[in-house]
Computed example of a mutant assay.
Amino acid sequence: MGKNINMYHFAPTDTFYDVEEFINREIDDERAVTILEEDLLASNFLNSEQKNAYNLILQTLLSNESDAFFIDGPAGTVNMRTIYRSIKDITQNTRNWKIKMIVAEKSPKRVAQNSPTKNQNLVLMDVEGNRVQAVIFGKDIDLRDDTLNVYQSYYIANAFVKPLDARHRREAYELQWIINSRTIVENIEYDESPLKPPDYNIIPFNQLDIYKDTDAEVDILAIAMSTNAPRQVNTSHGKSLVQDIYVIDSSVKVLRLAMWNRFVHDECSEICNIIMEKPIVLGTKIRVSSYNGLSLSSRPTSVFTIEPFLASAISLRAWATENNSLLEETIAKNLDRPGASTPGSSTDLLVKISEIVEALESIPAMMV
Rank of each mutant, 00 (worst) to 15 (best):
Y8W: 11
H9M: 09
F16A: 11
I23P: 08
D29V: 04
E30P: 04
I35V: 08
L41G: 00
F45M: 12
F45S: 15
N47T: 00
Y54A: 02
T60R: 06
L61C: 15
N64V: 01
E65K: 09
F69V: 03
I71C: 08
D72K: 11
R81T: 05
T82V: 13
R85N: 15
D89C: 09
Q92E: 11
N93T: 13
N93Y: 08
N96T: 15
K98N: 14
K98W: 02
V103T: 02
A104K: 00
A104I: 03
E105Q: 12
K106R: 14
S107P: 04
S107R: 02
K109S: 13
R110W: 00
A112K: 15
N114M: 02
S115T: 09
S115N: 08
K118C: 12
V123P: 06
E128P: 02
G129E: 11
N130D: 08
V132S: 02
V135E: 10
I136H: 02
K139L: 12
D142G: 13
L143Q: 08
D146K: 05
S153E: 11
S153T: 11
Y155R: 05
N158V: 04
F160L: 15
P163V: 02
P163E: 06
Y173E: 03
N180Y: 00
S181I: 12
S181V: 06
R182H: 09
T183Y: 00
Y190E: 13
D191C: 10
E192K: 11
E192M: 11
K196I: 15
P198I: 04
D199M: 10
Y200S: 13
N201K: 12
N201V: 01
N201Q: 11
I202N: 07
I203T: 09
T214P: 05
I220F: 03
L221E: 00
A224C: 09
P230K: 00
P230H: 07
T235N: 03
S236T: 14
H237L: 12
G238P: 09
L241S: 14
Q243P: 00
D244K: 04
I248N: 02
V252Y: 01
K253N: 08
R262I: 13
H265G: 14
E267M: 05
S269D: 14
N273L: 02
I274H: 06
M276H: 14
E277D: 08
K278T: 12
P279F: 00
I280F: 03
I280N: 01
I286V: 07
R287S: 14
R287K: 10
S290I: 09
G293H: 08
S295D: 13
L296W: 04
L296S: 01
S302C: 06
V303S: 11
E307Q: 10
P308D: 01
L310N: 05
L310G: 13
A311G: 12
A313S: 08
I314A: 14
L316V: 06
A320C: 03
T321H: 03
N324L: 14
N324P: 00
S325W: 08
I331D: 05
L335N: 11
P338S: 06
G339Y: 11
A340Q: 08
S341Y: 07
P343W: 11
T347C: 07
T347A: 09
D348F: 12
L349D: 14
L350W: 06
I353S: 12
V357D: 09
E358T: 07
E361N: 07
P364R: 03
